[in-house]
Write a protein that binds this DNA or RNA. Structure first.
Lengths: 369, 369
DNA sequence: TTCCGTGCTGAATCGTAGA
DNA sequence: TTCTACGATTCAGCACGGA
């Protein structure tokens, strides 16, 4: 993507004081004041509605410091559903048409959130499992160790042209497609924010999780909004990766911690956050291979198994007994397929071996560079 | 458990012709004729409501044989919700007070099912992820590989004294608590039922999955009901493990296949034997070191003698003056070698000394173990 | 007999730029 | 907005057949 494109994306419709800022207040209210259709991605870590009763103790009788905060208490499922509808509706308004939302949750709340997303017209793209490499064990031995959380990735509408940095994800996974299950440790050690020796927030998410989310579904300069900002993991990672961010947090103490944290983050240099794509390569028409003499007019193209063949014409079109057209059209035609990538389908004979014409295209591109 | 207790559990309230039988018909109707409060466990694999449109082709132009059966078609979410309410209500009636239900689904339907379970008063115990070791890839590169399905395990009521064979699960997991994510292959090869050389059912589940479900949440002699029996995986595994089973299936063809299959199953003698296999060391992509902050984007990698260097990018690829790629590719490239183990070749500087990135990988593996 | 290369397949909501 | 043409896109496991 060109520098200009980055800048255009980055400007958005925001007043200067809206972006790269933490907004103190209720997320529905604050989102209501932001311009509609202006946000590229939302990452939301809403209250889980844990419904814990009593305290939990380890086998050594030490107490587990669970989530017992007021913000996680709801009267019943109906109250939680109203809350969910309200904030998702506000998210829907601020999102761009092609924007996406990520929501993380556990079995306590994620089914309700997922159903509501669908009811509101969002289109689920994947559910992604955060598989915790070091979860808290189940102390009572009455259930399976709760070793994962679920994220839902959804676009604002069914036909959205959403951002997905396929090549970046593939690179991050050593050349294999990234799967819908991610193994990452929980947030501990030096990364875990502390106040007076105790954890500053009960559900701080690891930066690695947000790194992958933002790398997958946003581009440098994009605006990423987090309506339940907490201690600002989303903002910290967004800043480091060259994304713009909007944080909304109700609790002034969390907000103060988040501001301090994000101020200390340095932005990674441009090249490091570049999004790899294959489309960066210049288009090479098949005809230019003929022009440059890499393929001769009249030469025969074959598929890998020599089941089909076609003759090259001087203008770069190819011809069979009963039709002519581009390498793609004829490739599709002979196979009876709806489409075909002629570059990888067709081959020429060189020293008695078949060579894909895509290899010749690579030579042209190398010459051009 | 005493022999008497097993016999009492096994007798239930069923007429002789209800148990260890496949019932042909609509599951709501059939369950309505069974005695209330009589079933120990329900395993349900309902239609997923996939909403596929058009055809999908692999990069080699072969067509993917998707689920296009009539039984997976619903008018809209409301129709699917009514269907879900109906069968879950019938399940609730036939379940014992302390009974449990397992439902498997994908992101297309599982959120709606989970929310409805909660609305009807079921109490979710865990959501369990079936992580597929060999999922179908994402052919268009537009999403994450859909590499898992979700199971919800719920008791009929909040305070149920449900069955959970904690020690069996622990044994099955080499002495560690069983986690909520299970890695198992999909159903292929000899286990996959065929008719005329084609798959007999589009969504046959692997027996290993049912083995773990039944081992975890039922006892010998328990009655296990499957309202969407298909080709009878639940019945086959239940029979082998000494559970009694009730199968309900609407399609006579599937039912015939299931009956034939279960007839051939022999009941296991005593305790079923599980062969524990030692797992390979988990694969750690270089990108996850970047995600976890062990290597910074923009940081420089050196070989042991500092003859070559490369810069790390946020997606885990590395770059030199004239090429980019994985740690292995670039390691080979700078040396002019055909191949290279990037893990031992590249180093980072830590406290003025070079540390092989393989050392950092060991840290990640230690965390994962 | 073993090894290796080829081919097939699996619950999948699987384009996009430019005219 | 609609249409056309380009051309991007796959992993693991099993079966089979030839060397």
């Amino acid at each position: 993507m060109s520098t200009v494109a980055v800048m255009v994306r980055a400007m958005g419709d925001f007043p200067d004081n809206a972006v790269d800022q933490l907004h103190l207040g209720d997320c529905v209210e604050v989102m209501g004041r932001l311009p509609a259709g202006s946000v590229d991605m939302v990452f939301a870590d809403p209250p889980y509605n844990l419904q814990l009763s009593g305290d939990l103790r380890r086998p050594d009788n030490s107490a587990v410091d669970g989530v017992d905060d007021e913000w996680d208490k709801f009267q019943d499922f109906a109250a939680y559903d109203r809350f969910t509808t309200d904030w998702l509706t506000a998210v829907r308004r601020v999102l761009k048409e092609d924007g996406t939302v990520w929501v993380i949750g556990s079995y306590h709340n994620v089914f309700r959130v997922g159903a509501k997303l669908q009811d509101l017209g969002f289109w689920i793209l994947n559910d992604v499992i955060w598989r915790k490499t070091n979860p808290m064990p189940n102390f009572r031995g009455r259930r399976f160790t709760n070793a994962h959380e679920t994220m839902i990735w959804a676009s604002r509408r069914q036909d959205a042209r959403y951002t997905f940095n396929y090549e970046s994800m593939k690179a991050l996974n050593d050349g294999l497609q990234m799967r819908s299950d991610w193994s990452l440790p929980i947030c501990t050690g030096g990364e875990r924010l502390k106040r007076d020796g105790r954890k500053a927030h009960p559900t701080q998410k690891p930066e690695a999780l947000l790194h992958r989310v933002l790398m997958a579904g946003s581009r440098p300069g994009d605006v990423v909004l987090d309506p339940f900002f907490g201690t600002g993991t989303t903002g910290a990672v967004a800043k480091r990766l060259g994304r713009r961010w909007i944080g909304i947090e109700r609790d002034p103490d969390y907000a103060a911690i988040a501001r301090e944290r994000i101020d200390q983050v340095t932005v990674a240099e441009g090249a490091a956050v570049h999004i790899a794509t294959r489309r960066d390569e210049p288009r090479v028409p098949f005809g230019s291979l003929v022009e440059r003499g890499l393929v001769r007019p009249g030469e025969i193209l074959f598929d890998q198994q020599r089941r089909w063949s076609a003759k090259v014409r001087a203008d770069g079109s190819v011809i069979t007994a009963d039709s002519k057209g581009s390498i793609h059209q004829i490739g599709a035609s002979v196979q009876g397929a709806p489409a075909c990538n002629g570059w990888t389908f067709w081959h020429v004979e060189r020293q008695k071996r078949l060579v894909a014409i895509d290899v010749l295209r690579q030579k042209v591109r190398a010459e051009m560079a």
